[in-house]
Design a protein around this nucleic acid. Structure first.
Length: 800
DNA sequence: CGGCATTTATTTTTT
DNA sequence: ATAAATGCCG
């Protein structure tokens, strides 16, 4: 692939004769790689374009080719193209693909980046308009929370009743909608009616701290554009062409940002898939993409519908599911492929058995099975709805020694030790950073507890200075215990020393370029990497973890080492901090082949030959909470998640559900997901759960399915008696400990064996009395104390 | 102030 | 089940 791209790059040069170039005639060999829809999306350079790109239809290819085409046709210089993505990963990929096609034109596209990184770039130039200095710091969630807690504490708010997290969520939502404190509609105020009040306070604190949170990055820029026509015009003129990836995920603030910038040239090309909008809960507005044609009059809509990723059955299953949604722009995915297997469906007794079965099935694909070639573990993934589902798989894989990788856990820069270390760096670089100071003033423990910190805080506020200065004043005034003041003095001295080291180092760096290397040996500069090392050692932070005996300590020290190493790639510590605040991800390059375990959300944009979709049970998927909170809208988003999940698979897709599952330590039984009923029967193969008929999993049809001769012909076979019966039978087997298939009576309810006030025995919980019956669950008051709802099959009559 | 016991809340997540 | 957060006591 890479080679071909490079050859193309050469062709662009060599196939274009001088006379052609003189006449402005351009060769466009890259267009021949595109299908007609892609080509039309790429060639429609002027005016608004909406590219509706279904899963696996070559959207990134179209987008990158469009950028190449713009430049090749002399429509725009690289710096006149604004290309926006959501993640750094997507931005990197686009950059490298454009680079590959053009034969690497250096840092060709200065305005290709994430919404946030582009906003930072713009905001640094005009920050004074919104009352910030150009070196403002960017706060992460942790800092935000710390700040809000301070505000709430000052107002004596009961953090129990009104958790800071709730307020943060509220403010976040408002910022996503581009509501400044004075623009929050009355009636939308929350948090005991004081949300807006705290929002206002929060914003002024941010200004005082010379800081911005992620939401501000966009909001400030939008405000600058709206209130300063001259600045807006400059950018409008500058960005002749705008491209937006994942348009269905934009929130209102991002939408406004885009509309403002595109208003002049109207050359905006948005790419997205309304069927893959799965971030409504964090402010994404599907409405943005649904409204595009109305927002940009005369917009050309191009549908990318040819799928190059999946087999026909997988596509049909995905299409069948998504067809249940009402609010769609509508697309029909198709593929030229004819091969492939049906989507497999299997039910299990409980979550553990599901994990066991997936593990075995995984290994059979690894060996090569059923005439399929052997697959590496890298080509397999397990996609779950909620991260707690991952546990049973991890447990199982650990016990059978199957290598796995969890994607989307806590990210490197979000880990406690990394944040602590960064907080030290932040204070050393800018002593005004009160939030960072607060974080590490007593980490490691220095005997500066709650009381002392409160004192520092009030002193700082009374004198109108930063926390570090406040601490200094407090030391001179006395008023702290000798233990606290000793260690505080040591810490402050440390920061003074480290700050000096840093400024010396920067100075030396500047001189070095001018006065040649000879100076190097004489200069007393310490490299920023060494300084970082020194800070961590002298502050006692390294020792703190070395003396820690918990099992994680070793890993944390390892992470700290990695952090210091990461500094090598930067000029100085400041540069590093700037970089990290925007890039919160960890690229773990790992050579061993591993199965990937991740959430459905985390899987968006990825693809795997073999995909497992476990946990398709009502309440879990679709998530009960989603449906409770957002009703029909929530259900549709869950359905889109299902669609995203299925369309991740290239060759084999396996959906499974469990009748029983331990959730929050409590056993729960549930019905198979309603989405299972929505799968088109013709494209599904139902597998026999192992042990049901004494056999191991085989693709052999289940006995009772042959009772239905026309099963294959009926689109809704899953509503048929046969399907219903299987569901009931499957779960009955689970409830009946005898496990003799022919003994299963279809309409029997295990709970019928029990009545109120029966004395029962539970294997784990001991003896108790039945106080209620609900479905297949019994409410029992246990003699050991406490009442629980348990599945009837887990108890037996005491007098039996 | 720090360590241990008790209580409580648990979707999805990028920047 | 479990982790994190709070409360209580030395």
């Amino acid at each position: 692939m890479k080679n071909r791209d490079e050859n193309q790059a050469i062709q662009i040069e060599s196939n274009t004769t001088l006379s052609q170039r003189a006449m402005g005639v351009r060769q466009t060999p890259y267009l021949e790689d595109l299908n007609s829809a892609q080509r039309s999306a790429v060639e429609t350079l002027n005016g608004p374009v909406l590219m509706l790109a279904g899963a696996g239809t070559g959207k990134t290819k179209a987008l990158t080719t469009r950028i190449v085409h713009l430049m090749n046709m002399n429509q725009a210089w690289p710096n006149e193209i604004l290309a926006v993505t959501f993640t750094n990963k997507a931005a990197r990929e686009m950059k490298s693909r454009v680079g590959a096609m053009l034969g690497n034109v250096g840092d060709g596209l200065p305005w290709l980046g994430t919404f946030h990184s582009l906003c930072v770039k713009i905001l640094r130039r005009h920050s004074e308009i919104v009352g910030l200095k150009s070196n403002f710091t960017i706060l992460d969630t942790d800092d935000q929370l710390r700040l809000l807690k301070q505000l709430l504490r000052a107002e004596n708010i009961d953090e129990k009743r009104w958790p800071p997290r709730l307020l943060l969520g509220l403010i976040d939502t408002w910022k996503n909608r581009a509501w400044s404190p004075n623009h929050v509609p009355s009636g939308e105020d929350g948090f005991n009616g004081r949300g807006v009040e705290f929002y206002t306070q929060y914003q002024s604190r941010l200004k005082a701290l010379n800081a911005a949170d992620f939401g501000d990055l966009l909001l400030h820029v939008v405000n600058i554009f709206q209130n300063n026509a001259d600045i807006l015009e400059k950018y409008q003129n500058g960005f002749k062409y705008i491209l937006v990836d994942e348009y269905q995920d934009t929130n209102v603030a991002q939408y406004m940002w885009l509309r403002l910038l595109a208003a002049k040239h109207r050359n905006i090309c948005c790419v997205g898939d309304d069927d893959q909008s799965i971030y409504g809960w964090r402010g994404a507005e599907v409405g943005n993409i649904l409204r595009f044609e109305r927002d940009f009059e005369g917009a050309k809509v191009v549908r990318l519908e040819q799928n190059y990723r999946s087999t026909p059955d997988i596509l049909a299953a995905a299409s069948g599911i998504i067809a249940g949604n009402k609010d769609r722009l509508g697309k029909t995915l198709w593929t030229a492929r004819k091969d492939g297997e049906k989507v497999r469906l299997i039910g299990h007794w409980d979550g553990e058995e599901e994990a066991r079965w997936v593990g075995e099935d995984l290994e059979s694909y690894q060996r090569g099975t059923r005439g399929l070639p052997a697959f590496g573990l890298d080509s397999m993934a397990i996609l779950v709805r909620a991260s707690h589902q991952m546990r049973s798989f991890e447990d199982r894989f650990l016990s059978i020694g199957l290598p796995y990788r969890v994607i989307g856990g806590p990210r490197f820069y979000e880990r406690m030790e990394i944040r602590d270390a960064m907080a030290y760096f932040r204070v050393a670089v800018s002593p005004d950073d009160g939030l960072a100071f607060e974080r590490i003033v007593n980490t490691p423990k220095r005997g500066i507890g709650e009381k002392a910190q409160q004192l520092i805080n009030t002193t700082a506020r009374d004198h109108g200075v930063s926390m570090l200065e406040g601490a200094r004043i407090l030391l001179n005034e006395g008023g702290l215990s000798s233990k606290a003041s000793n260690s505080l003095r040591k810490l402050i001295d440390g920061f003074d020393r480290w700050k000096n080291l840093i400024s010396n180092s920067n100075l030396a760096n500047n001189t070095r370029s001018e006065i040649l290397e000879t100076l190097d040996n004489f200069s007393d500069k310490t490299s920023h990497v060494e300084i970082a090392q020194t800070i961590l050692e002298e502050s006692g932070y390294t020792d703190f973890w070395q003396n820690d005996k918990t099992p994680e300590a070793a890993g944390r020290l390892e992470n700290l080492k990695e952090l210091v190493k990461a500094l090598e790639g930067f000029e100085n510590i400041q540069g590093f901090l700037e970089h990290v605040s925007l890039i919160m991800e960890n690229d773990v390059s790992d050579s061993t082949e591993k199965v990937s375990i991740m959430t459905l959300h985390g899987a968006k944009g990825l693809e795997f030959p073999i995909v497992f979709l476990p946990g398709w049970e009502d309440g879990l998927f679709p998530s009960q909470r989603s449906m409770d909170e957002s009703g029909q809208k929530g259900l549709e988003e869950e359905r889109r998640l299902a669609y995203v999940g299925i369309t991740r698979s290239e060759a084999v897709c396996t959906i499974s559900f469990a009748a029983n599952r331990r959730v929050y330590g409590q056993w729960q039984s549930s019905m198979p997901s309603r989405f299972i009923d929505e799968l088109p029967a013709d494209n599904i193969e139902v597998l026999t759960p192992p042990g049901l008929y004494g056999g191991n999993s085989s693709r052999q049809d289940i006995e009772f399915e042959s009772d239905l001769p026309e099963r294959a012909a009926k689109a809704d076979a899953y509503n048929s008696p046969g399907w219903k019966r299987m569901q009931i039978r499957t779960s009955q087997r689970f409830l009946d400990s005898s496990e003799t298939p022919q003994a299963v009576i279809i309409d029997a309810k295990v709970t019928e064996k029990y009545s109120i006030s029966d004395r029962v025995m539970h294997t784990k919980l001991g003896e108790g009395t039945v106080i209620g019956i609900e479905g297949n669950k019994l409410s029992i008051v246990f003699d050991s104390g406490g009442a629980k709802k348990v599945i009837a099959s887990f108890v037996s009559h005491l007098n039996d």
